[in-house]
Design a protein around this nucleic acid. Structure first.
Lengths: 159, 159
DNA sequence: CTGTTATCAGGAATGGTTACTAATAATACA
DNA sequence: TGTATTATTAGTAACCATTCCTGATAACAG
């Protein structure tokens, strides 16, 4: 099994640049839109393929899908994210990672169970400044977070 | 506001029973398979709809998709999960939640940033006993997973 | 019982992501 | 430099989890 040598194509480098450039955490779709301004003929498949390649070479990161779409991050340094349950955007939290607390927990888990634990993911949920302002938002409903939009006929009127 | 009165249909209660019964964390698909043994004519749409209903009434929980499919949990008590990067299964970690550490962090984030933070999700990644045994597994491949915090040392070639 | 209507089965539609293919272009090296 | 090799591309079709739509069914209130 020899690994195939990667080529740095124009498309690939443009995709990388665009992901690294943006402050937000774009979906593949958004990357496509940005890249398309520079390479109008690029195809969605190319974007997906290259995002994967870039992720596995460690040049960008992949953020798990809390809202249905996958998101990517050009900043590969460890940092916390918060997903806004209002609009689904993902923002960086401006405080350095205090991995020690969770890492201790991780280690504890590794010892206490028969599983091999060697990684974790910690994400926060809340409201971005925008959503927070726009509406007081029903803080009641918030508890449901786990990863889906409860925008149903649940209860949007006055209580 | 008034919510529409829910009916406890046969299908719904069977679905609930099956989710509560199983120790693992079934995907909608798996729930469908189980339920189908008792209700051969049930449809996938019904399963999805009812899982959603049960989630929003708090009778079961929804686990975010780390592997592409959504998973559900009949045990609504707080507890940790580990997703196996080998086979994608999700298992409970047998240690009680020590939320205080992370909650402190959550509070800190709420104060330090202009975001409203009121929830978090902490998941672990590793290998289930099965996968651990079957193969030493190529620990290299670990980096392919969503985005863990540890294990990110190695750089270039993926595959 | 009976009427209202939430829920159902079945199937079609959606939307994000992957897979396939012939054509193209990035590298190795002659 | 030119040429061969082959990773990568654009375009498009397929995929698959999930959601939506419809007329029919059945839960529950009265």
């Amino acid at each position: 099994m020899e690994q195939k040598r990667q080529r740095m194509t124009h498309q690939r480098s443009v995709i990388l640049e665009e992901v690294q450039r943006c402050q937000d955490h774009p979906t593949a779709d958004e990357v496509y839109e940005r890249v398309r301004k520079r390479l109008p003929r690029i195809s969605m498949g190319t974007v997906y393929r290259n995002l994967d390649v870039l992720v596995s070479s460690g040049l960008i990161r992949k953020l798990g899908p809390d809202f249905p779409q996958m998101r990517f991050d050009g900043d590969t340094r460890d940092h916390y994210h918060m997903t806004c349950i209002g609009c689904g955007c993902v923002e960086d939290m401006g405080i350095p990672p205090q991995d020690d607390t969770v890492s201790q927990l991780e280690t504890a888990l590794g010892k206490l169970t028969k599983h091999g634990v060697f990684g974790h993911r910690l994400e926060f949920f809340g409201l971005c400044p925008d959503c927070r302002e726009k509406k007081g938002y029903l803080l009641e409903e918030v508890q449901e977070i786990p990863s889906s939009e409860e925008e149903q006929e649940h209860g949007a009127e006055g209580e």
